[in-house]
Design a protein around this nucleic acid. Sequence first.
DNA 1: AAAACGGCCAACCGCTGTCGC
DNA 2: AGCGACAGCGGTTGGCCGTTT
Length: 351
Amino acid sequence: MGRSPCCDKVGLKKGPWTPEEDQKLLAYIEEHGHGSWRALPAKAGLQRCGKSCRLRWTNYLRPDIKRGKFSMQEEQTIIQLHALLGNRWSAIATHLPKRTDNEIKNYWNTHLKKRLAKLGIDPITHKPKSDALLSIDSQSKSAAKLSHMAQWESARLEAEARLVRESKLRSHSHSFQHRLTRPPTAAFASSAGELVNKTAWNSTAGWSKSSEVNNGVVNNGFGDLESPKSTLTSSENGVGLSSMGMPDFVGTASASSQIKQEGEQEWKGFGSSTNLAMENGFNDIGNAMEDGFINLLLNDSTDPSLSDSGKESDGNSGDGIARDDHYEDNKNYWNSILDLVNSSPSDSPMF
DNA sequence: AAAACGGCCAACCGCTGTCGC
DNA sequence: AGCGACAGCGGTTGGCCGTTT
């Protein structure tokens, strides 16, 4: 089932796009929509293959892309989702509206992965590399439970992804004009929104609203995710983790409880879409553990002694969490996680 | 001042899944 | 069923740019 590489044709340009090329592509898509990517370059007067045009559009030119630093909440979402989904960047991107899978992938590889590694956490398994914290049998058992939860949650997200695909299929016949009403990166949000919040992206008004938000992001340098006080009115605000049935749980670890407070504000009032899709509530303990774990990582990013460079901490300010002793928190946190798991009911549906 | 180095990211490559013929 | 076209995905790379020596 082979197919010839689309970019092997002679005369087709490769490499960085020029502003003129961008302008041509933008102008053409704005007027005609992209339709067939293969036919587009010739029609738009571009010496590029269709694939290159598509990538340029989806990763850079699309109007609903948020660029710039990742907010703390976005980082948190990426880490959480990566723990559950692995390198499934597109799936992760569906929970981060306005971010492309490519951008998330790059950010993971250049920032978050290193941060995890420096904490002694395997960026693949999201478990501590050393056995310092997981040295005894009961703790190993706990790790297995965590893994089990991750698998469970992964399966749940698989089902969400199916919803997304089905939703896309339903709208497949729609024209580009219709697509403009639904930001592509908000695929999950929009599909789930069809279940819960039919007003989310059903109209051009939705698009306009999105554009306004987007402009705001460009103007102030950060997205609406940045402030815990931001008004979250629809699933477009992403951080779909909120939709994982986030916790009433208050953990024993300080970091966990801290992020819980923040998270309650941050995520309140949206994200029930997934809960509808997945009726069974996820075990709150698992979520809370993830919360605290992530929080430690994020806190750590601001620690000059652990951070790659000072500039990496830029996007993590303003959460109001004391950071002086989060190394201790880190240790205590993992212990508390394990305590939690060990003390959780053995007949939990999760296990 | 400039060479060396490393981080970052846009873009490419190659593979897979899906659809239509 | 087989094939080709296509979109989408994840891994990789090349080059720019800032920092260090």
